[in-house]
């Protein structure tokens, strides 16, 4: 492994062998049958440092907040109040999930913009290739569909879990299978059931697409001129980082609230 300059030309992107598509995470090493990818390393790293920060913050919380604590509390309270407004009594169940989504996605998106993120890596010789290929050690985790799909699956799973918990299994099933209006409701229910699967695709591909597009945009901008020109796009990506984390959280919250709402007769 060694430090390298960021890849600055379009040819670098297209020169990757077919085995290494830009939209797929790169395998750093193999642990038996388990492929350790750069996005997995990055997400493990984020989990580790977010956990350390959480433990550190929990010991440092005081009634009179410092600047950092005050800023975090404002952020925390904003999301909590928004959740409370929509979820009412379920706020304490929903909030930890939503806050974790926001923190994880936001930290991941913003960290991906830090210098060195795509430029620290190793050169690898791939099978059937003569030249060595640069493989970055870290990768923006939301530009890996494995991660966004995992987040979407968790989001949809907990949405249904909370719906069952608040409606009961019968109330929950009534949402999908009803014989009112000569079976039209049953058909509508089936359509809605299909829509539940589209939620997974919509949540995962929205986040993945936006972050992946940003990554490509920055790479393209850097290929023209590595200084100044990428700067506006960095600001744009900072905005995208906040917006995408908020969108993911908001959609999850809305899905949770809608699905946990009792079906009116």
């Amino acid at each position: 492994m060694r430090m390298t300059e960021p890849q600055t030309s379009n040819s670098d992107i297209v020169a990757l062998p077919s085995e290494y598509s830009i939209s797929a995470p790169e395998v750093i090493f193999q642990m038996g049958f388990f492929p350790v990818t750069n996005s997995l390393i990055t997400s493990l790293l984020f989990t580790f440092y977010l956990s350390i920060i959480a433990i550190f913050v929990s010991n440092k919380m005081s009634m009179v907040p410092g600047k950092v604590q005050a800023l975090f509390e404002i952020f925390f309270e904003y999301i909590f109040n928004m959740t409370e407004k929509m979820a009412a009594k379920n706020v304490y169940s929903y909030f930890p999930w939503l806050m974790t989504f926001v923190l994880f996605i936001l930290v991941a998106n913003l960290s991906a913009l830090l210098p060195g993120f795509a430029s620290i890596g190793l050169y690898k010789t791939l099978e059937g290739e003569a030249d060595q290929v640069f493989i970055p050690l870290f990768r923006s985790i939301n530009s890996d569909l494995n991660m966004t799909l995992a987040l979407a699956l968790i989001s949809v799973f907990i949405t249904h879990f909370f719906a069952i918990r608040s409606l009961g299994i019968v109330g929950y099933l009534k949402k999908w299978f009803s014989f009112k209006m000569f079976g039209i409701s049953l058909f509508v229910g089936l359509l809605e059931l299909i829509a539940e699967f589209t939620k997974i695709i919509s949540l995962s591909f929205r986040l993945f697409g936006n972050i992946m597009a940003g990554k490509i945009l920055l790479k393209t901008a850097k290929s023209f001129f590595p200084f100044i020109i990428p700067l506006p796009f960095y600001f744009l990506e900072v905005m995208v980082a906040f917006i995408q984390s908020a969108v993911f959280m908001m959609l999850t919250l809305v899905f949770m609230v809608i699905l946990s709402k009792k079906e009116e007769d």
């Binding site: 598509s21 995470p25 890996d144 569909l145 995992a150």
Partner: peptide, 11 residues
């Protein structure tokens, strides 16, 4: 997109 069940589970 490089989606693998084992990586998905890991994430």
């Amino acid at each position: 997109f490089g989606v693998q069940p084992i990586l998905l589970l890991a994430q």
